[in-house]
């Protein structure tokens, strides 16, 4: 499928601020499952935008605005083609010893250890006990853990903040996509399965209602034996399919937050975010189909 995504973030300040520095993770990745064909970032006030690829392979944009400004607006527009199946099947199972035999495993220290927002607390351990052991089949366990979160946690906005710890959201049994992703990642890592955070988008025009479509979304990828990184969305209880667009991967939210920054000035800021994701009607492809159909008709007439 092909999508256009407009992601606008605006900060308004009670009084003008100055010397603001902003770092963005807004450019969708290009990999085997999706391809970002177009990306534009426009900033108000106007300034030069720089970019680099970070250690995870994400594309990062950053810029500075020195003079006083009462508003900072960042608009990212991208077009992405996704090539995942519409209804992916659960992969076949594999025991833990298959994972332990994987030579890549020892290189995944960062995805096996706690990270700033993914810590192993008492509540998390209790949740892990509820779900059970992963020994015999880590694949099944992963999907089961993800589903367990979907079924037992309530999606409630403003129950948590970007700083909420995993243990706190486990205690609340509530949160938003970011919290659910962190909980699943923490469960995986606690059980010796490498897991990483994915920020991205989910398309809501797929019939059944989905959660997390009005802003940027987040989910989890686990490293599974003979499969590699495999995405699961614990917010919607779904294996990642063609309706998902990946922006960036990291240890947790902090590595890939869509927009973060610092500025000078005492004024408090208010942020508004607007994400619009549309399926792109491909004119060229439709024309080609129409032409082929017309030619077929002509041939039949002859």
């Amino acid at each position: 499928m092909q999508f256009t995504i407009a992601h606008e973030t605006t900060y308004r300040y009670a009084e003008p601020i100055h010397e603001s520095y902003t770092i963005c993770h807004l450019q969708p990745l290009s990999d085997l499952d999706q391809y970002c064909t177009r990306f534009e970032l426009s900033v108000i006030p106007r300034t030069r935008v720089f970019s680099y690829a970070d250690r995870f392979g994400n594309f990062v944009q950053h810029f500075s605005v020195i003079p006083e400004h009462p508003l900072l607006s960042i608009a990212a527009r991208s077009t992405v083609v996704t090539a995942r199946p519409q209804d992916p099947q659960a992969p076949s199972g594999a025991p833990r010893k298959a994972l332990l035999a994987d030579p890549q495993l020892r290189l995944l220290y960062d995805f096996l250890s706690p990270s700033p927002l993914v810590e192993f607390g008492r509540n998390l351990r209790a949740l892990s006990d509820e779900i059970g052991e992963a020994e015999s089949d880590v694949v099944a366990w992963y999907l089961c853990a993800g589903k367990y979160i979907k079924d037992n946690f309530a999606y409630i906005k403003r129950a948590t903040t970007v700083h909420t710890t995993v243990d706190e959201s486990v205690r609340l049994r509530a949160g938003v996509c970011q919290d659910f992703a962190h909980v699943l990642i923490a469960l995986c890592r606690l059980n010796g399965i490498p897991a990483r955070y994915v920020s991205g988008y989910i398309f809501s025009g797929q019939g059944d209602s989905v959660l997390g479509a009005e802003a940027s979304h987040a989910w989890c990828e686990a490293y599974l034996p003979e499969i590699g990184w495999f995405g699961y969305d614990p917010t919607n209880g779904k294996i990642i399919n063609e309706y998902f667009v990946k922006i960036a991967i990291g240890r947790d939210y902090r590595d890939v937050s869509p927009v973060r920054g610092v500025y000078k000035g005492l004024a408090k800021s208010t942020m508004s975010v607007n994400v619009a994701m549309d399926e792109l009607y491909d004119v060229d492809r439709e024309r080609a189909l129409a032409r082929a159909f017309a030619e077929q008709q002509q041939q039949q007439q002859q």
Binding site: E19, Y21, I23, F50, Y52, H62, S64
Partner: peptide
């Protein structure tokens, strides 16, 4: 200084 690391990276 904010931005120092990116200048360094570049």
């Amino acid at each position: 200084a904010a931005g120092l690391f990116n200048a360094y990276r570049a």
